[in-house]
Every structure is written in structure tokens, then in C-alpha cells.
Design a protein around this nucleic acid. Sequence first.
DNA 1: TTCGACTGTCGAATCGATTCGATAGCCGGG
DNA 2: CCCGGCTATCGAATCGATTCGACAGTCGAA
Lengths: 361, 361
Amino acid sequence: MTAVDNEHRPTLAAVASRAGVSASTASLAFSGTGPVSDATRERVLQAARELNYGGPDPRARSLRRGRSGIVGVVLEERVRDAFRDPIKIATLDGISEELGEIDAGLLVLTEVAGEAGGDEKNPVTLSDAPIDGAVLMGCSPRFEESIATLRARGVPVVAIEGNPGDDDVVMILQDNREATRLGAEHLKKLGHERVAIVALSLDRDHLRAPVTPERIAAGTSSTTLERLAGARDVFPDAPAYTGAGSYVEEGRLAALELLSGEASSRPTAIIAQSDLLAAGVIRAAEELGISVPEQLSVIGFDGVKVDGLWPYDLTTLVQPAAEKGRAAGRAIKAMLGGSDVETRLFTAEFHEGNTTAKPSA
Amino acid sequence: MTAVDNEHRPTLAAVASRAGVSASTASLAFSGTGPVSDATRERVLQAARELNYGGPDPRARSLRRGRSGIVGVVLEERVRDAFRDPIKIATLDGISEELGEIDAGLLVLTEVAGEAGGDEKNPVTLSDAPIDGAVLMGCSPRFEESIATLRARGVPVVAIEGNPGDDDVVMILQDNREATRLGAEHLKKLGHERVAIVALSLDRDHLRAPVTPERIAAGTSSTTLERLAGARDVFPDAPAYTGAGSYVEEGRLAALELLSGEASSRPTAIIAQSDLLAAGVIRAAEELGISVPEQLSVIGFDGVKVDGLWPYDLTTLVQPAAEKGRAAGRAIKAMLGGSDVETRLFTAEFHEGNTTAKPSA
DNA sequence: TTCGACTGTCGAATCGATTCGATAGCCGGG
DNA sequence: CCCGGCTATCGAATCGATTCGACAGTCGAA
């Protein structure tokens, strides 16, 4: 197809002059604000049609209005990886739903994009994008600088699952530790003693490896650390193994490691830090001929219904992901409206499915 | 946290005057273009720091430059649904990768968002967003009008998997029919005769139901129709059943219907229109005690590796999703650069895994 | 008939930066 | 010593719309 001719495209002024009115009147005719006679409006629209005018330029409009109608969503990973996580998607959906009400668009920014920095002709990075607000999903320490810039520019910032402590930013938090502890206590009450943990990544390295005190000390993912702490609040000596991401396959691989021993020393329950990991644990058990929940109890985290897990109904901690997204969206809206907003802590709810039971005697 | 004060935020002019230089010089100091003495630049940056100036306003910049550095991606469904499709995500990743090189941001627009139209204070819709280009993912007939507006405004438009025929738009197409036919022929060569089809949705109604000639006539999803036609090129009488979306669970439900008959009349092979559906078919077979591929061959479409499908290696038609996304991104870039771009047809590659075999005698 | 209230339209300022062409100062070579 | 060439800086125009205040003209009421 032919490239478009960007040179002489009609402007509002051109339309106005063709319609025989002033630019101000033409503007009113388009925006619908203010009093314009029907006859005039029609004449303006007619002129616009004749000139093939596509409506007011959003760039000019946003400059004048001081609002672009766009909210940035910042991901830590590249699109492909971020969107494999159903929790992120649900959260994003919540944000989108809430912001859709004010017809705001979502600008997806990846933390890495800014670094690529090739030609740098049209830099749209966190600190340099026409956004009215920003939502950081799983904010990493590296954001500090960008956050400062955004605040200097007056852009409201909300962080989901960030490291608490950033005082300048509204946070949407999850009771990861308490919730996991709740799940662990359920297992304890059932009588489990040998419990293992399949954990999410501790940092950006995405290692498949046993968790050691050193790795914990060096860990940067607060979500992982908090859930780990919650499980060990109840089972202090529970061995843990990290997967290279929140995927079914990773859960399977980790579980194969953890379940490799003799039946007598093997864990009778596994706490997985996400539902996808838990699904993988179940697959591994099936594969090893270990029945769930009779010989192995499995508990997850998230409460996303894992596609294709039937007939299992995973025991898990249901986190209100969409609601968290909506809360983030509402927070942005409120701050745009000039209100103050406070950090919120969300609570996960325990769901008992059919993947946990008493350990076999 | 306290809402931000949008009233008196410093501007470039303020910084300039504090640094004792003109606005033009200050601009040069920030953009790095043009000759500025080190001393001056430092003075400007210092003044900016003192005033807590967060850099040039992107809105003003984009007006002046005529570019916003943002490309819109239009989805037909709401975020949650669109992002459950691994193909869409891979494509999006490709777009993002390619556009990341010019540091362009991705603005996610949903077709439905515009309709909500509540307060309409900050409308950011397809036809009214500060975008330099637009990618339509699975464009529906309803886009027609918006496309016209975009073209009038000079915004390059690329459609992925759209209905061919839109002459005004660069298309990224897939050889759905030919590819499916290839897969079907593979089955035929193996000796299969009783073949059934698990199809994607025919239209926006997302019905779980057998495919009838009437439904085909009323169908609007060209992808589904093309793949269906491809399968029936080889097996004209193959019964088909649509799932309510491209999900494992839907594939499972559809397959349960199709496999419910006597072993002697039951299909010996199933052609699924997506890998997720195929995964569901396999689950259904497992559940019914039908072994794959010995008693049932299964073939998919997409070539995404379905998480948790192990140990199966699905026979499928691998579509170059990420590459298609990159092509879309490159097309946008080229059109922004003023070049002409042509519609491209992508070819899926047949991958023989371990889910197809000769029918048992 | 006259005075306000109201309506429709217009001019001009404004949003905040970028950029082109002009200018002033500076240096070294002829 | 003078002038061409270069560098750093500045003024002013520009991007394209929105919006406020002003201004005619119309109508109804007193």
C-alpha cells in the first residue's frame, strides 16, 4: 500500500475557513461543548467531510488540555514473558476495565525497552512518555530514578506488588506471607510434617535450583521471599526449590527433584508458590505414580483456574488479581481527580479444593 | 499519598531563565542536538535540578515533532480474553520487539472500550489516540469506519489476520486453508478416514455446538472458516464442533462430544484448529481411556508449545507468530519512513510430533 | 420603546516545546 | 590588519487545537 502523505493534511483551521467560520467555532462544533447552531455545525462537518479531515489532532489536543488520556503500564520483563502469567493478565484486565470507563488507553512499557536505546529518535520510555499516570507491575529497585522523574512531572504512580518502603508511591500490596502461612497451617492441621516448597524466582537470574540461605539473602523478589517466609513460619525446615518462572513445566521439573527420594522420606505435601507451578507438581506426581491427594497434597497460590487441570480442583490461596488491577485503576483516576489515595493491602482467600488431604498413614 | 500539584510545574522556559539562557538554548541542552558549550549545558541541567524539572513535556514535544512515538494495537476482545491466546501474545511480542528498536510504545486499545463511552472526558479510542501507527489484531468488519479515519489522518494501518479485501490496509496474512489441508493430507496418507474437527469460534457468539452449513454461512471469523475449508478439502464430510474459545478446556469438551460414540464409528483422528484445543482433545482422550496416538491421532494448529502437555509432542502446523508480529512492526516502521509496504502472506510449517500415527486396524 | 438576558460567533491568548535563520563573538590565515 | 569561517546563543515562528472574554444580534418582558 502507498505510504501516506504527511505533508498537507487539513487542519481545523482549513476546515473552518472552508465552512466560513472561525477556528474557535469549528472547534466547538467538533467537541460538542458550548453553543453552536445546528446549521453551523452541519456546515463544519460537511466541510470536514469534503476535505477528508479526520478530526482534531490528538497531539495538539492533549497539549492544550494537559491530558493525554493514556496510562502507562510498566512491565519488568518483555511482553512475551509477562503475559504468560495469568495473574498479570487478570490484573491488567482489571486496570483496563477501570480505566476504560474514562476511555483511557493503556500504554505498555517494558523496563528493558528503554535500555535497548538504538537510534533514540522517538524515545518513549517510562520517564518520557505522554502518560497521565503510571502503574508499575512488580516494580524493581531500578525504577527509583524513573519514579522520581514521574513524580517531578506530576504523574501519579501506583505500584503493584512492589517493595514496600517507597514512600512516594501508592502501593497495591498482597498479604503474601500471611496467606501462605494460612495454607501451610491447613497442611499442618491435616497432619503433614514432611513438606516441600516449589518457589518462584528469587531474582532476575531465574535459576532452577535448591533454595539456600545465601540465595535468600541475595533475593530481590519480595513476593517470592514473603511467600517463602510464610511457609517456613509453619515448616521452618521445609526444603525449597526454585523454578525458572511461573510455568507448569517448571513446577513439574522442580517437583521431580523434590519427589525423587524414597517413599518413606519423600514429602507428603508440596506448597507451590503459584497455581501454574502447582499444576506442574501434580503432573509430576501423576508421572511418578504418586496419587494426589492421597499420597501427596498440593497447594497453590493465585486462584487462577489453570486451563486443562481438570479433574483437579486445586487447593490454593485466591488472590483478587482483577480487583487489585481495578484498585490500581481507581487509584490513578482518583489521583488524576486531585484526591489523595492510600496504599492498600489485599488479602488472599483460602480455597480448599480436592488436592489436599490427610497424609496416608 | 498526596495528590500532585498540577498547577505550577516548571517549564523549559523557567529553567532557561533561571540558567540565564534562552529557551532555545535550554532545549538544545536537553535534546543534545546542536552545538552547546559544556558550561552552558551544565548550567541548564543544574537549574533543572534546582527547580525539580522533569524534562520536556512529551505532549508539547509530540505536537511539535508531529510524532508521538506510540503505536496502537487494537484487540477485538477485552484484555483478559485476548491475552489468553498464546498466539496473540507471541505476535504482540514480535511487534513490541521490532518497535522497541525505535523506542516506540504500544498502546493497547480494545474495540469494546470505545463503546463504553461513559463520561467521555478523555476519549482515547482507535480514531482518537495520539498514535503514529496502528496494528489491528484480527480485524472485524466493524473497524471499517475507524480505518477510514485513521487513513484520513495519515496513520499507517496494518491488519493481522484480517478479512482480505480491505484494500486500504496492509495485511499480514496466514495460509490457513492450505496449511490445514497439509495437515489433513498427512492424516489421509496415514490411512485415516473417519476424521473430526474441533473448531474455533465462527463468530462473536462463541457457541459450543456442532457446525452446520447455516452457521458457516453466517460465520464472520475468516480464520476459522479458512481452516475449516482446508480440512474439508481433504475430508469433505468431517463433522465439526466449535468450542467457545481457544482453550484447553473447550477442546476437551468438544472432543468428549465427538468421541462419545462406539469405538467402531468413532473418529480415528481429530483436527483441532489450535494447539490449546488439541491439548484439550488429548486430555479428553486420556480421560476416556483412548490412547494417543495409537487409537486417536491429534493434530493442532499454531505451534505454540503448550505448557504442561508433556510428554506429548503435538503434531501441528507451526505458524510464525512472532515473525508475523515483527513483520507488522517493520511495516509500520517502513510506512512511517515513507516507504510503500505490501501485504504479506505467511506460511505455516508442518511439524510432525508424536500425536499422529496410523489408525489401529 | 428600552433594557437586560441570552445565544451564536469570533479574536486572541495559550499549552510547552522545537527549529530555522540570524547574529555576535572568536580564531587563525593571508 | 582584515576577513572568511566557525561556534555558541538567541528570537521568533510554528505545531494544531482549546478556551476565555468580548461582541453583536435577537427576543421577551416591563
